[in-house]
Design a protein around this nucleic acid. Structure first.
Lengths: 213, 213
DNA sequence: TTGTAAATCGCACCAATATGTGGTTGCATG
DNA sequence: CATGCAACCACATATTGGTGCGATTTACAA
């Protein structure tokens, strides 16, 4: 019996989805909620295999609820419910760990098929949306690359590169064949350009601007 | 005149592509190379608006060539040429900043259309592949999340979370209402578990394990 | 259910090293 | 003349590694 947990603020749709899924052999609705603010506790309580998650909900959006799950290492399958094929929301959902999405206007047959697809490890979504979302992803990727790295000089860049690899000033000096004082001198300039005040801040800011993950 | 640069090790295909594209109004083949090891210099020399890049090439793969471009902040559009709709390669290409791909077996009309699509800001690829690639991306995302964060205790986690936000020990103490020595105590344990010896290393390792970007 | 060991959390002390800040100087290059 | 690179100085703060202790919580065996 596959346990499905539903988050949908529209009472009628929530009811219809519950009835539809409960009536499907092999499926069981373990919960149907109007908002997802307690999603962590509810997920632990009901232990679903898949969550149907509305995107737009009061209090906490479905995407934020999804993020809470993933941030806590909860890998339950999550399929987003959406009114529009709004690829910005869908992109955000996929990027936050959603397995796919279903349009609210879909036929019952399609809804069940999508749930089954997701349970089987698939990614229910229309192909054309997938293409657009992927292109958006590539676009974001490229935007990141275009950001100039803080107008650092070549040597400053060298020093920063070693900093974000965890090198101490001493090790940087040895690696670049310069003195510690020279490293400190460059560091001062780097911190000024990055507008930070510590090595950690410099490292964090640089890693966020780079695709290191 | 849109300048197209071609990288294709198969001499016949390279020739056919050159002729096809040169014969298309508005397009100009500025170069046709059998390998991409000198892609940085060649890109600067020919200044193309779009590169057609074979994936499998001797010496340096097309994906690695693409990575070299992106690592140097070169945002020229790159469309991969592939024999198979092998979504693993395609996934890697998209992830490395490719704008799309073309199957080598495609008709001339489709090849030109794909190039035009990419030049217009599109992402030429079949929708079904896009879906699979996106699902693969979500899968990778989820795999990352499943990695336990070093078996840290709740408090250690609290301290680490602030560390990767750039907090100093002093600020962490203030934030968590504990003494500096307690922070130091937790830090020692954290460094032990992460197998690092400095704040920077801890920050770097943690950010690499998280999807902070 | 109870007792015990281990883990966690908090705190303290010491010494050495690393980092950060502000200032200054000089040489080479464009 | 401005910039980049290298270096020096002094001082204050932050960090690292080591050690020790007590109280509370958690896990596990009897």
């Amino acid at each position: 019996m596959k346990r499905i947990l539903i988050y949908e603020d529209n009472a009628q749709l929530r009811e219809v989805l519950s009835i539809l899924i409960s009536a499907t052999p092999g499926f069981e609705v373990v919960g149907a909620k109007a908002d997802c603010r307690n999603i962590l506790a509810e997920t632990r309580t009901f232990d679903p295999e898949l969550i149907l998650m509305d995107i737009d909900m009061p209090g906490l959006s479905g995407i934020d609820g999804l993020k809470m799950l993933r941030a806590n290492g909860i890998t339950v399958k999550v399929v987003m419910l959406t009114v529009f094929e709004d690829n910005r929301n869908i992109f955000e959902a996929i990027r936050s760990g959603a397995n796919g999405y279903i349009l609210k206007k879909s036929s019952p047959v399609k809804i069940i098929a999508a749930i089954e697809d997701a349970l089987d490890g698939g990614a229910p979504m229309t192909s054309s949306i997938a293409t657009q979302v992927l292109q958006m992803f590539a676009e974001r990727h490229r935007e990141k690359r275009e950001t100039p790295e803080f107008n650092l000089s070549a040597r400053e860049q060298d020093v920063l590169n070693l900093l974000v690899k965890g090198f101490s000033y001493k090790l940087i000096a040895e690696e670049l064949f310069i003195s510690m004082d020279t490293v400190r001198s460059h560091i001062k300039k780097i911190y000024e350009k990055l507008q930070v005040n510590s090595k950690s801040e410099a490292v964090i800011k640089t890693l966020k601007y780079r695709d290191q993950i």
